[in-house]
Design a protein around this nucleic acid. Structure first.
Length: 166
DNA sequence: ATTTACAATATGA
DNA sequence: TCATATTGTAAAT
């Protein structure tokens, strides 16, 4: 069996920051990408499909995330692909409230693997749906920002927004 | 099958 | 401040 979800639809999400690209599998949102690469040939929504409903939720959730506000109605996320360790990391990420940050070390400790901070970073990078899963709220221990796929500037912007709201 | 690199951190020098 | 061991994955060899 495939390790990765089978994508059944690819839709654009228009925001003030650009067009995000959401990919859906039969189980829910399978991947969310930042508006890089000019958002070329994405689009096309199969008419009668539950995807249409999810996309509405995703669109709202992404816009809320960009405003640094907690999402009230996140879409279902398909977490196929990914190892058991990564799923635990993602689940832990979902428990971080908006406006707060966690450190890689503390997350690793929560997973009872206090030395796996770096592995946690790896899991964050493998996160299929940034923003929906708040991987941007994870920072380095000594006050550093750490890194971020798709551009550190996003992480800065998001954290700045959330800090403002809090 | 082994090695290397990564969104890290703690420790020892 | 710099070097190193540690931990889970993915990618390269």
């Amino acid at each position: 069996m495939r390790k990765q979800p089978i994508i059944v639809a690819t839709l654009k999400i228009k925001t003030d920051e650009g067009d995000f690209v959401a990919r859906y599998s039969s189980a829910g949102l399978a991947r969310l990408d930042f508006p890089t690469t000019k958002t070329k040939g994405a689009a096309t929504a199969p008419a009668a499909h539950p995807v249409a409903g999810w996309h509405e939720l995703t669109t709202r959730a992404v816009r809320q995330a960009l405003q640094g506000r907690p999402m009230e109605a996140p879409p279902p996320v398909d977490l196929s692909g990914g190892t058991a360790f990564q799923r635990r990391v993602w689940a832990a990420l979902r428990t971080i409230p908006a406006g707060k940050t966690e450190t890689y070390a503390h997350l690793a400790a929560s997973l009872k693997k206090p030395k796996a901070a770096r592995a946690v970073g790896g899991a964050c990078g493998a996160n299929p749906a940034p923003l929906i899963i708040p991987c941007h709220r994870v920072v380095a221990a000594q006050g550093g920002l750490g890194g971020f796929s798709g551009g550190l500037h996003w992480k800065r912007k998001l954290l700045g927004r959330e800090a403002e709201e809090n």
